[in-house]
Design a protein around this nucleic acid. Structure first.
Length: 584
RNA sequence: GCAGAUGUAGCACAAUGGAUAGUGUAGUGGCCUCCGAAGCCAUUGAUCCGGGUUCGACUCCCGGCAUCUGCACCA
């Protein structure tokens, strides 16, 4: 029988069969989970609850289950009873080898994981900056976490649609267009469009504040834009295109490429239908001049309105978000959509989701699953939201540039012999990767403290530590003149033997659990933690078990372990959106 | 005021209801004639307070306390 990608599932099935034979079929939970116990790979906890309910002695029940179970395990694992009645499984070295042989490359790993979300289509709504404005640190988490989640979902078999829901429509365009017509500098627009748009917006805004006549003119520009004036529309398009060009420079560094960029403007002509439908179903009503939705059953939203049309008749983000859900349901046939946004927007999205459920039910439409993937704020070392010394937002491009500079200094210190160009290339991977990883390694729910010394530093759970492990494995294969893609070309490998080999092999098998946990909880930090532990197990193995030894059998099995450690580290880092290196 | 989130060693973080609460950093002590010491090994140190549910609670429930966030037309 070939190895299953998910060893836990295979064991669960065997436990379920054994429980039925042992007469424990009613109300027994056969689930097998990864174990943190030393010497135990997986554990089944169901006996305790079952014994309690049936008023049986748990250790006796475990004994009975074990007797039915043992013949089924055949070489896969040894089972024993632990504590008050846990069933503990330790995979045999032969089973570990079988797994390593069964998953020799990235496609086979992906095929193993693909069952989880096969046939599903998920829209991931992330990044979502406003045009004509620089992206700043506040945009980092959505981009980084969103991309990692996209990759995890795709790896787990889903069709993923990456959607950048940009803020490209709003009242600010009146002032911006007013200034654009009078003061735009073509050379500056060519060099750095967003820089110039920001300058123009400030100019237009300042002039409007100083002179009511200018304010009226700016308002006229906005009206013209909204009514489809060709000249203003053309300017607005140039603003959008220039902004997207600038954004893509950052996305390129973060490994992000969107499938679609449908911003607020795209939904602008689709909001009338929203007003009509929601009023038609009796969900929305006028209040203080605005069109709002209340949720009487909700403790807060019975009095806190969801404003879907402002009192001046204009749309807002609630209107366009509703239109977006409808568009995605009707045109993209999505299983669901994930919103990767700052947790401060939680109220808005709860109101949105509640409203959509009632609206779709009333209209007889199947509602897509809508999930909020919210995250906390990036804090500086003072515990307050990260800012520059002068109190401004830190631009994302400046943050990434500083990361690369700091990484360059470090690489130059640690590896002064590498050529300058290579040190620069390494710094780009280490610098940006460190920022990404520092963000991903935290549980996204809470705020986190960003400190350069901890992020870029190579100690602890950092990108550099993982990249270093990758570089060392690559170095081994270079020295041996072997190919990590075909580690058994010299001689077929035997099962792991030494404590270091066994620990590494057992951790490798757990990759499946880590991917599943990160994907199902939409929390990439579980994958980070796993990769960090894997790199740690590799480093310990590296210290005790030399690969370049004369005995062919020893060398063959260690070479196989190195190859798979490299594969899993690189695959895992890729799932997080990081690049890896041959040397560093 | 109402609502939500968070509270774990000096500091920064982890723990999908499971066994002795894990790691990093800082501190201490070891390991380079041996595949990269950006590494490895050892060691000191913690669940905000009070109840409850459970065979079992950092985790779930109730009540406090502290911090952060949101609450009528910016997204």
């Amino acid at each position: 029988m070939p190895a299953s990608f998910q060893t836990a599932d295979r064991l669960s099935r065997l436990v379920a069969e054994a429980a039925a034979e042992a007469g424990m079929d009613s109300g027994f939970a056969p689930a097998v989970e990864p174990s943190a116990q030393a010497g135990t790979d997986y554990q089944a906890n169901g006996v305790l609850g079952w014994a309690k309910k049936e008023r049986k002695n748990p250790r006796q029940a475990a004994q009975g289950l074990l007797q039915a179970l043992e013949p089924k395990l055949k070489g896969l694992a040894s089972a024993s009873i632990g504590g008050p009645g846990f069933i503990n499984f330790a995979l045999t070295p032969e089973a570990l080898l079988e797994w390593l042989r069964a998953f020799p490359d990235a496609p086979s790993l992906e095929a193993g994981a693909a069952g989880a979300l096969g046939g599903q289509t998920w829209i991931v709504d992330y990044s979502s900056p406003n045009t004509a404005k620089q992206m700043h640190v506040g945009h980092l988490r959505s981009a980084v976490i969103g991309e990692a989640i996209c990759r995890l979902l795709a790896f787990s078999g889903a069709r993923v649609i990456r959607d950048n829901h940009i803020g490209d429509w709003g009242t600010q365009f009146g002032k911006l267009i007013w200034a654009y017509k009078r003061q735009a500098d073509p050379a500056a627009l060519e060099r750095d469009p967003i820089e110039e748009f920001e300058r123009l917006y400030k100019a237009g805004s300042g002039a409007s504040d100083a002179d009511p006549a200018v304010l009226r003119e700016a308002q006229q520009e906005l009206v013209k834009l909204q009514s489809g004036d060709p000249e203003n529309l053309a300017i607005w398009r140039r603003i959008t295109e220039g902004s997207l060009r600038s954004f893509q420079q950052i996305y390129d560094r973060l490994g992000i490429r969107f499938d679609q960029t449908l911003g607020e403007s795209f939904y602008n002509d689709k909001v009338e239908r929203i007003y009509r439908e929601l009023q038609g179903h009796g969900l929305a009503a006028e209040s203080e001049g605005a069109l709002v939705v209340f949720h009487p059953e909700h403790p807060r939203f019975k009095t806190q309105p969801f404003i879907i049309r402002k009192s001046d008749g204009a749309a807002n983000y609630a209107s366009t978000d509703l239109a977006t859900v409808l568009y995605r349901a009707e045109h993209l046939h999505a299983t669901g959509a994930l919103y990767v946004v700052d947790t401060r927007q939680k109220d808005h999205f709860e109101q949105l989701f509640l409203t959509v459920r009632k609206w779709f039910a009333a209209a007889g439409r199947a509602a897509p699953q809508l999930e909020l993937v919210d995250f906390g704020t990036v804090l500086g070392e003072d515990g307050k939201p990260l800012k520059t010394r002068s109190g401004d937002n830190i631009r994302l491009k400046d943050l990434l540039a500083e990361a690369e500079e700091r990484a360059y200094a470090l690489v130059s210190e640690k590896s002064p012999d590498l050529p300058e160009a290579e040190r620069r290339a390494i710094a780009a991977v280490v610098g940006v990767g460190s920022v990404q990883y520092a963000d991903l390694a935290q549980n996204r729910s809470s705020d986190y403290l960003f400190a350069w010394d901890k992020a870029i530093s190579l100690e602890g759970n950092t990108a550099a530590y993982l990249l270093y492990a990758v570089a060392r494995i690559r170095s081994i294969f270079r020295k041996l003149g072997a190919d990590p893609r075909a580690p058994e070309a010299g001689a077929p490998a035997g099962a792991p033997e030494s404590p270091g080999e066994l620990a590494l092999a057992r951790k490798l098998v757990r990759f499946a659990d880590a991917v599943r946990l990160a994907q199902s909880s939409l929390r990439p930090h579980f994958l980070c933690l796993y990769l960090y532990e894997l790199a740690g197990d590799f480093s310990a193995f590296y210290g005790t078990d030399k690969v370049a030894v004369d005995e062919p059998a020893v060398r063959a099995r260690r070479q196989l372990l190195c190859a798979r450690a490299l594969l899993v580290l690189e695959t895992g880092l890729r799932l997080l959106g990081l690049r890896t290196l041959e040397r560093m």
